[in-house]
Simulated assay, not measured.
Amino acid sequence: MDLMGRDSILQLRDMLQAAEPQDDSSDEELTSHQPMAKMGPADVGPKKKAEKSALPPTAPKPPTKDIWDEEEVATGAEYEDVLDPRPQPEYDVVFKQAVTSEDMFLQMGNKNLSSASCEDMVVKIKLPGHKSSEVELDVTDKFLDCRTPKYKLGLHLPHPVDSKNGRAQWVQDQEMLVVTLRMVRDLDFINF
């Protein structure tokens, strides 16, 4: 049950070629009138930008056995442990700003009620049944890691902070760790 034999296909090809207008136009004219006529798989997608030869060549990186570049690894990924059964403690992130009488009563400064006017970020971590000596705290610019024998907290911070100049305080009667971190933002010179 062959619908079309070889001869039928060849005749159909000849008929379609005869139906096309035969003129001696060049390929450039064909592509200007029919842009899809000369398109191939490499033409799909955005065009690659030509590299500038004026830039000095960069030194090749020394070969390493690293699987990922440093930029590809999410900040704090080294602290995430899926197999660790310790629960996450209760915590709260609060923004804090220094308000003077000029800001409050005279409204002479640029401060407002939004978090954009806040200078510090305060992370309050409740650790019931612990002492300050049992708490391990590690803070980077974008990640806070707090571990105790019963709890584990890996917190991606909402804003970059100055990790070198932070403060941590243990509140004994509430069994709470209070970490105060100075936020570092690009447009702070406008807000303050």
Rank of each mutant, 00 (worst) to 15 (best):
K124W: 05
G109Y: 04
M121I: 00
S133A: 10
L155R: 00
D145P: 06
R147L: 05
G129R: 01
I125G: 08
D138P: 05
L127N: 01
L153R: 00
V122E: 06
N112K: 07
S132G: 11
L106K: 10
M104A: 15
T100C: 14
S115Y: 15
L155N: 02
G109W: 04
V122C: 08
C146S: 05
L157H: 00
Q107A: 12
F143Q: 02
K152G: 15
L127A: 01
M108K: 10
A98G: 13
A116V: 11
S133E: 05
D141Y: 08
K164Y: 12
K96P: 06
A98N: 13
Q169S: 14
L113P: 14
P128T: 00
E102H: 11
L144M: 04
D120F: 14
P128C: 04
D103K: 02
V99F: 10
K131M: 05
L155Y: 02
K124G: 09
G166S: 09
S114K: 08
Q97Y: 14
S101Q: 14
A116P: 04
P128D: 01
P160H: 07
K96T: 11
L127E: 01
S101E: 15
G154P: 12
F105I: 11
E134I: 03
M108I: 12
G154F: 09
E102A: 15
L127W: 01
M104C: 14
V161C: 01
K150W: 06
S114M: 11
K131L: 03
V161T: 03
D141G: 13
T100D: 13
L106S: 15
E102Q: 12
M108N: 15
K150D: 04
D103Q: 08
G166V: 04
D103A: 13
K124I: 04
